[in-house]
Amino acid sequence: MSRPTPLPTGPAAEAREQLPEDALPGFDRLVHAVLASPGATRHPALGAALRGQLPGTAGVRWLHAEGLSPTARASDLTAAHWLSLHETWQANQPAPRDGARPAGRAGRADSRHGHAPGAQAIPRYF
């Protein structure tokens, strides 16, 4: 049985009040992930917390667009920052799949010949 995600407090709660009902579960997951990131206890830098939530350089670009330093703390975020972060997070989520194949199965090597699907070793004729 999974535990429910605790409701955010402070500016994150203010931002949550402004979101539509269908966006709340995603927002709660994002807030929980940013505030409970593994580095949050040792290094409370927001840049490190965003690295696991936004792919590639999206986290750094978001910080720069908002005028925040990568060393800023999650507690420094305002309600407007949380709303902007949620919007960026949603824009960078992978598109939903049609359910035909599990997401982790694409591109696996075929163990029959040791190459990726569709790839064959080049024959060597000497």
Rank of each mutant, 00 (worst) to 15 (best):
V34I: 11
G26R: 03
L46T: 11
R3H: 11
A119R: 12
A100M: 08
P20I: 04
M1A: 14
L46V: 06
V60N: 13
A45F: 11
F27R: 03
D22H: 13
T78A: 04
A80L: 05
P96K: 15
R16E: 09
R73E: 13
L68T: 03
P44H: 04
P4M: 07
T71K: 10
T78Y: 03
D98K: 08
A58K: 09
D110H: 15
P96Q: 14
N92H: 06
A79W: 06
A12E: 00
A23G: 06
L77H: 03
R61F: 14
S111E: 13
A116M: 11
R97E: 12
S2A: 15
G56P: 01
A58C: 00
R3P: 06
H43V: 09
A119V: 09
L7M: 08
Y125H: 10
F27G: 02
S75I: 11
E17S: 15
L46I: 03
P11S: 04
R73N: 11
T5N: 07
A49V: 02
A79R: 02
G107S: 05
A80F: 00
Q90E: 13
P38D: 05
L50W: 06
L63A: 03
V34S: 03
I122H: 08
L19S: 06
A74K: 05
L7F: 10
A74D: 01
W82I: 01
R42M: 12
S75T: 15
R97Q: 09
L35I: 10
A74H: 06
E66C: 14
L50R: 10
G59K: 04
A74N: 04
G59S: 00
P20N: 01
A116Q: 12
L83Y: 00
R3A: 09
D110G: 12
P55M: 07
G56C: 07
L24E: 02
T78Q: 01
A103R: 14
G56I: 03
G26P: 02
P4S: 12
H86Q: 04
E14N: 08
W82A: 02
V60D: 13
A33R: 08
S111K: 15
A23T: 08
A106W: 09
H64N: 14
A91L: 02
A36L: 05
W62L: 01
R42S: 14
P102H: 05
S2V: 15
P25K: 03
G10S: 02
D110K: 15
G99I: 05
A33H: 02
S84D: 04
I122D: 14
R101M: 12
S75A: 15
R29W: 07
